Amino acid sequence: MKRAERWLPDLLAAAAVVALALVEVKGSAEADPWPPLLVLAGVALAVGLCRRLPGAALVVAWGTGLVQLWLGVDPMLTEVVLAAVAFGCARWGSLPTVWLSGFSIPVSVGLAVLITSPYSFYQALDVLGINRIAVETYRSGGYDWRIVAGLIGFALMATPWLLGLALRFAARSQDSRRSQVAAEAQRDQAEEIARLREEQAQLARDVHDVVGHSLAVILAQAESAQYLEDADTQGLKTTMANIAGSARSSLEDVRQVLASTSESQAGAVQHTDLDSLVDGVRASGHEVLTTEVGTPQPMPPELAVVAFRVLQEMLTNAIKHGRRDQPVHVERHWEGDLRIEVRNAVLPGDVPPGGGQGLDGMRRRLEAVGGHLDVRRRAEPPTFTATAWVPVRNR
């Protein structure tokens, strides 16, 4: 919208005040009409500024009042439109403008009563159709006419000021509600982004665990094939079959991981058989010694998946970083929580896995369900031990 169009309602309001001023001055008995016209021109300017520049409108209104006092012009009926200035200051003005305009109302009404003659007051009341009541009240000595004039003037100015203040608070409350709604929308959006990022991180950890484990098993099986006798075709076929089985199982596991992230297949069942992991490592040629203490307990699917992925990563690290000529020890303790411990021998001086993605992924998985992970390196004998505590029930 152009600047002139934005000011058009204000210009029309000022023009209407000028028209009323001309009618009032023309109908008055003033010998010199120019002083009243000058005063009413200031009133029209104040009305025209009260919406866009309420502070300037208040200054113009006070300046017009001082000029009126200096010229000795009696208050005129058209000056009632200064109520629009009171409304504009309360509705759109700054905080100092609001308080100054409120303070100006009793002061300006008091000054107007002081300079108004009884004749002008009753003439104004006659225009309003209440002259008879006012005259009878005055003659009966019930009230001084200045009290009546002050009360009427104060009501005419204070009412629009209070209305503007009420609309100001209502608009501020509405803006606050809008800001709250916008803040809630931004918070929901941020939560959705965080959820999507967590799902992506979870998917990355799942794929890392599946692919890393299967590649470690396949690599171990392929390396063991190098030590087979050339004439041992049956052993070679067995090893190749194990490699194919590991690859096929890995591919199926990856498909299940991807399916579990889809809304249409959110209930896809993933592998949770811990014994199958141990069997897969044994098929690669590694010796695995297992110990199970206590009675195995059924676990919720989400906790069973966590236990499966954690043991999968533990065995992957044992294959990659452990000695092939020493067994991998796997212990499962069903005592309250499920405690899984994997221990493997390492060469002296070897650096065990420390802050890699695998260990970080295990910690995140366990902490998400209320469990925790502990990893330790022992010098004598050189071993690396990873211990995980997995809750058996949701907490």
Rank of each mutant, 00 (worst) to 15 (best):
271 H>R: 15
174 Q>L: 12
60 V>R: 00
232 D>A: 06
98 V>D: 09
230 D>W: 09
211 V>I: 14
149 A>P: 03
24 E>R: 11
197 R>L: 09
32 D>I: 00
197 R>D: 08
145 W>T: 04
238 T>D: 08
294 G>P: 14
67 V>S: 01
388 A>Y: 05
221 Q>A: 15
17 V>R: 00
141 G>E: 02
308 F>R: 11
176 S>Q: 14
297 Q>L: 15
362 M>K: 03
326 Q>W: 00
48 G>D: 00
182 A>S: 13
177 R>T: 06
355 G>M: 07
24 E>P: 09
393 R>Q: 14
349 G>N: 05
138 Y>Q: 09
291 T>V: 14
204 A>K: 09
199 E>S: 05
128 L>K: 02
234 Q>H: 04
96 P>E: 09
61 A>G: 07
175 D>L: 11
193 I>H: 08
16 A>E: 00
316 T>R: 13
201 A>E: 08
283 A>T: 06
368 A>C: 04
114 L>Y: 13
95 L>G: 06
77 L>K: 06
149 A>S: 11
171 A>F: 08
201 A>C: 01
177 R>I: 08
133 I>M: 10
271 H>L: 12
79 E>H: 09
20 L>N: 00
173 S>R: 15
302 E>Q: 12
210 V>K: 08
39 V>L: 13
393 R>N: 13
88 G>P: 05
57 A>M: 01
133 I>N: 05
250 S>V: 07
223 E>R: 13
220 A>Y: 02
110 G>N: 05
340 I>V: 15
210 V>M: 06
192 E>Y: 08
326 Q>K: 03
116 T>K: 11
256 Q>P: 02
246 S>Q: 12
4 A>Q: 08
372 H>M: 03
72 G>T: 04
334 W>Q: 11
62 W>C: 09
82 L>N: 10
72 G>V: 05
200 Q>C: 04
171 A>H: 11
285 G>Y: 03
180 Q>L: 15
345 A>G: 01
174 Q>P: 03
204 A>S: 12
276 S>V: 10
338 L>N: 13
80 V>T: 15
236 L>E: 13
97 T>G: 06
239 T>I: 13
138 Y>G: 03
191 E>P: 02
230 D>E: 14
140 S>H: 04
249 S>H: 11
